[in-house]
């Protein structure tokens, strides 16, 4: 491979990797948010993302709802749905048994239900998209070619991360969320309404996933299986450190770039296994990821 080609591959690989990595970052943020406050890895995150995308598809394409109405409506539906699930289902599961296995299985159940519902509507059969929210005109960065939509995706990920950072660091609600994550009993004693916080966190997590869906659906095309992208998000969260929000974003970029570089310099067949190798390597060599704190040992 000649030097010019390698240079082109590197530039394009990194730039495109940052874009797709932004989506992984948004989903990873959603996952980490829930994990920080309730120690539950949400196995339905991909399906929440997918369902929000189909909600937007339904509104924009089949109901011809104008964009300025469809977008907030989708976000509201996502928020409400997730908060409801947390309130009705997970609270009951927690009460019935404290075991984290049960909570994870309940989220697994949610993922099947959402997938089944979307398939029932009949929209899931053929890959679909809706008009992109930002134009897809080309933009050159060095020798790499991307679109305006790609740039928007990247900037949105950064904006959401900044927003969440401010939320968690400076607002009362954010501090309450962190407190619930560190020590729920103490938080309750301090007057924090655990129920409300959990619902808020789930709702917010779903909103972030919905934003990701609104941006990325036209780019990756929608099928009922599109929730599978969440594997990359889990890899991103692990690489970044499963309890760190900025880590989730950096992890997203790392996974996105690695995916492209593996595809360019090793083999296209290896792309699909790259995130799993990344997960195993990180957990073996440095389980707390790039930014996570020391892995907490539960005192029993």
């Amino acid at each position: 491979m000649d030097k010019d080609l390698i240079l082109l591959f590197l530039q394009q690989g990194i730039v495109s990797g940052m874009v797709v990595g932004s989506v992984y970052a948004l989903l990873a943020l959603s996952i980490v948010m829930i994990f920080k406050t309730s120690e539950v890895p949400n196995f339905a995150q991909g399906e929440i993302f997918m369902a929000a995308g189909y909600c937007a598809l339904f509104l924009l394409v089949f109901q011809a709802t104008p964009v300025w109405l469809a977008v907030p409506l989708t976000l509201v539906v996502a928020f409400a749905g997730a908060a409801l699930f947390r309130r009705v289902v997970l609270t009951q599961v927690s009460r019935a048994s404290g075991s984290p296995v049960n909570l994870v299985i309940a989220t697994l159940g949610l993922s099947y239900v959402l997938k089944g519902l979307v398939r029932r509507t009949g929209f899931g059969d053929t890959p679909r998209s809706f008009p992109a929210l930002v134009s897809t005109d080309g933009v050159m960065i060095g020798q790499a070619s991307i679109t305006r939509l790609d740039v928007a995706i990247f900037l949105t990920a950064l904006a959401v991360m900044a927003f969440l950072f401010c939320l968690f660091a400076y607002t009362k609600v954010g501090r309450a969320m962190r407190a619930v994550g560190m020590n729920p009993k103490a938080a309750r004693l301090m007057g924090v309404d655990l129920q409300r916080i959990h619902m808020l966190v789930w709702g917010l997590s779903a909103v972030v996933s919905a934003i990701a869906a609104l941006l990325i659906s036209p780019k990756i095309l929608m099928t009922a299986e599109m929730g599978g992208i969440v594997t990359m998000a889990f890899a991103a969260a692990i690489v970044g450190g499963f309890t760190s929000l900025p880590g989730a974003v950096v992890g997203g970029f790392v996974i996105g770039i690695a995916e492209n570089l593996v595809g360019l310099f090793i083999s296209s067949r290896a792309i699909v296994v790259a995130p799993f190798v990344a997960i195993m390597l990180v957990l073996i060599v440095r389980p707390q990821g790039l930014f996570g704190g020391r892995v907490a040992i539960k005192k029993v």
């Binding site: 289902v89 599961v93 019935a96 049960n102 309940a106 949610l110 239900v113 997938k115 089944g116």
Partner: peptide, 19 residues
């Protein structure tokens, strides 16, 4: 046509009431 929904619902109901 209801398989997936039924499967998911079974998981959820079990976790809620028969942990």
């Amino acid at each position: 046509s209801f398989q997936e929904i039924a499967y998911g619902a079974i998981l959820i109901v079990f976790m809620m009431y028969a942990p």
